[in-house]
Design a protein around this nucleic acid. Structure first.
Lengths: 289, 289
DNA sequence: CCGCTAATCGGAGAAATACTCCATGTTCAA
DNA sequence: TTGAACATGGAGTATTTCTCCGATTAGCGG
């Protein structure tokens, strides 16, 4: 699997912790929890300190750092220190309370969304984005797959690409996804969307597509997930770390956000994009009053 | 000697070095010179590395760190690491330009989205929201309609409401929307989504539904549009289609935003919402690896 | 130029810290 | 229940930081 990120570039380590959280073991999760709630102290602590505070063995701390892609504890601390530089003002009081009035709820949701898209930007990997754009422009055929909520995101991506004049197919039915993936080959590109990254209905077809020689891009919130393991390029969005919210569907928000970045980049590189947008817009003009 | 500064607050260590430079000894100056011209490497180096590179003894390196006010080499490195995070220069121009690099584009899109959701909040009408929530909770049946891009938003709304345990039907086919609307009646609620508010395929069915006695809510960017004229409640999102951007699809963003506010409010008022969310989440758990 | 003092410097080893290896515990599937 | 794979922490090792102290140099008065 591709390394998470060496270091010293602007990638938010604390967010990264969330994105691999589910793939951590119990002891490692303890470490993650402590670091996330006490980043300042973690930076100053030694391996022994941290292991004691988290209630695990030193070895688990080291393993935790390695899983994040660092060479060791030292690199990890440096990176966290960098995250602390301009830490967003505490997000306390953002929790929605039972007795909040309508406008307060609206404001809190807005603030959460604002934070979410900033976090998305922090997590954005320029190389991944660039490579995704290039691969998509180079692909002979593009297939977008997703089920459930991610299936709706898939429709959105399809719509955007179609408007830009690209020939794309979208599938949301797990059986059809499987069949479709069985038929792809060299020169094709599969774009798999799965928040968890562990959805069988996505993972298996994506693996198959990869074996068939297709290029694979995936959009997920979990970097160390099965789907990411099979992907050539991974687009990572923050995983919901915001508890309690109606539908807990904030991931959709960040997905749309990064897809908008992606399609904006594509439209910049594709010279016929503007015309396509215009043509498609005109095509529905007479459907209006 | 007085300690310069403890640490871990934003004081530029590299500048600090300059400011005490004259008071440094010859060997310490060598260290200072090296650090100032190779800060990245210095952060990664060990005391021994650094002393070799600077051509001095290890002890001089330590003394150098102490003179800067740090407790030791380690603290010094952490602080320099923090100096290295480069705050990207503030964007001179929010408009996306042909020659912008990938990261700049990402930042600009992010800022636009941030503005958009703030604008959405400004437009939010508390009464409309409240009445929408009440009506939806009171409705016998709910029908969500949308075509094109708004059809995808419709799917999203349907998904959210379904997760909250509400019985909702979504239609994206203009013929079926027409038929469906012909059959609604008193006690039913129609939720029409149309950015322009002028889409015939939405306006006509919505008018019909209204005549049939259904309650109508619409989500649009145009307050004085045909669809709004037939609605009991209008949810308004900013219309600013941002110029030049892939697909000009930022409206989708604000739509999702306000729908998240809406569904959050609904989940607060609906006491079985939490259970429904849990049930639906569990239902797909065994589809994961 | 010499000799003295104080500041400076770096190496050797001590202390602290990070890391490796491996035995043991845990989980889970058969 | 047993076996296999995985997870875990402790004991020992390697690495790094730091301390101590003797050697060296610079400054200065004669």
């Amino acid at each position: 699997m591709a390394r998470v990120g060496p270091k010293l570039n602007q990638s938010n380590t604390l967010l990264m912790i969330s994105s691999i959280y589910t793939s951590l073991t119990k002891a490692e999760k303890k470490v993650a929890d402590f670091v996330k709630s006490n980043p300042e102290e973690s930076v100053l602590a030694t391996v022994t300190d941290l292991s004691e505070q988290a209630g695990v063995g030193e070895t688990s701390v080291i393993r935790f750092c390695r899983k994040l892609g660092f060479r060791g504890f030292h690199e990890f601390k440096l990176s966290v220190a960098q995250d602390l530089v301009d830490r967003p003002p505490s997000l306390s009081n953002m929790e929605i309370e039972e007795e909040d009035d309508v406008f307060t709820v609206a404001r809190k949701v807005t603030m959460k969304h604002e934070m979410l898209i900033k976090n998305t930007l922090d997590l954005v990997n320029v190389e991944s984005l660039t490579s995704a754009v290039d691969k998509m422009l180079a692909a002979k055929r593009i297939f977008v797959y997703g089920v459930g909520s991610s299936g709706i995101t898939a429709l959105d991506l399809h719509y955007r690409l179609m408007r830009l004049g690209m020939s794309v197919e979208v599938q949301r039915d797990s059986h059809i996804i499987a069949m479709s993936a069985a038929l792809v080959g060299k020169g094709d590109l599969v774009f798999g969307i799965s928040t968890s990254g562990s959805t069988r209905d996505l993972v298996d077809p994506v693996r198959q597509a990869k074996l068939n020689g297709a290029v694979v891009i995936c959009l997920t919130s979990h970097l160390r997930s099965p789907i990411a393991a099979h992907a050539d390029t991974v687009l990572l969005v923050p995983s919901k770390e915001l508890p309690m919210e109606g539908g807990a569907l904030s991931t959709k928000f960040t997905q749309i956000h990064i897809l908008n970045i992606l399609t904006t980049l594509i439209s910049m590189k594709k010279d016929t994009a503007d015309q396509s947008l215009e043509k498609t817009a005109r095509s529905v003009a007479d459907k209006l009053y």
